[in-house]
Design a protein around this nucleic acid. Sequence first.
DNA 1: AAGTCGGGGTG
DNA 2: CACCCAGACTT
Length: 373
Amino acid sequence: MRGAGAGVSEVLAASAVAGRVDAFQRALLSWFWRERRELPWRGVGDPYATWVSEIMLQQTQVVTVVDYFQRWMARFPDVAALAAANEEEVLEQWSGLGYYRRARFLHRAAKVIVEEHGGELPSTLEGLRTLPGVGPYTAGAIASIAFGLPAPIVDGNVIRVFARLFAIEGDPRSTANQKSFWGLAEALVDPQNPGDFNEALMELGARVCTPRSPACLLCPVREFCAGFASGEPEALPEVARRSAVKPMRAVAVVVTRQGRRGKELLVGPRDAGGLLAGMLEFPTVEREGKRWPKLDEVASLLGMKVVAEEVGELTHVFSHRRLLTRIFAAEVGSEATFADERWRWVPERELSQAAISALTRKIYERSKQLETT
DNA sequence: AAGTCGGGGTG
DNA sequence: CACCCAGACTT
């Protein structure tokens, strides 16, 4: 029995991969070359495309990313185009994808690349690592996939695959186990095909070595796997205890007016730094806990008296928050203006392409739906 | 080492 | 529901 965080060489020596690293690499790679999915960022040969895809894929599944990636590349085809854009345009493209800080990092890094690297992505692990938003995983992914360097990667898929292959017990996030995962990734990556090898590990985790019921009978490396041998591959890795989801309440008012070009809606940017920082939203008051804010509080936010009708309520779940929102609707005169420069009128047909979060999109859909009934 | 930060897919 | 996802960054 190996304890958590055993040295990499001991873990490797005690496994079925010992002395057969070449065979392991060949088995994994030939499966990958046969079974891999066609994805829009694969085989493009453009480090910028690899970078964009890897940032989008952070904590986000492949199927979700595909459309966003294609729209992004059409709008910002290269580093220079991204660097020249303003932040709102960047957030418009990211709208709905979540973790908006990633979009800001991508944008900021593009400026750094133009100003300090002559417009070319750094081609070393250390250079990539200096870019905002590029951590150990993403640096390894770009280095191996775009530049052919034998850099290791460890993501959620690799953790699961290695925990099973090598029977790594204990909390996979512990420092000791992280050292094991990174050490194994470094020891196993095929220097001839580092990018394909790394992608193969992740694709195996995503499609075969899945969390609940892994498809071991389809696995190209099951002969090397301690989890398969044990008969209980799904027992690893150990699942971490999740922190509690805190309740939140909010009141949002969808304020409309008839502008010269049809109906317009009042929106403003959220505070920087917090949840959904900088995204446009309807006038909203949020509160931690289960007590509802009052409509008056939204009115004072706007500096006006609001005559509004409640049109519904919806729930939105974040990873660590559960937010219930009461939605009101108010129509104001076409001459309505607001002293606070935070607020601005957006034509209804432009809202769907604005820099709004999925939550704001849901609120809008709900208010529209009630209008017609 | 623990918390923060979205959103969607899945059993 | 709960869990997970081609994580990074802050405290």
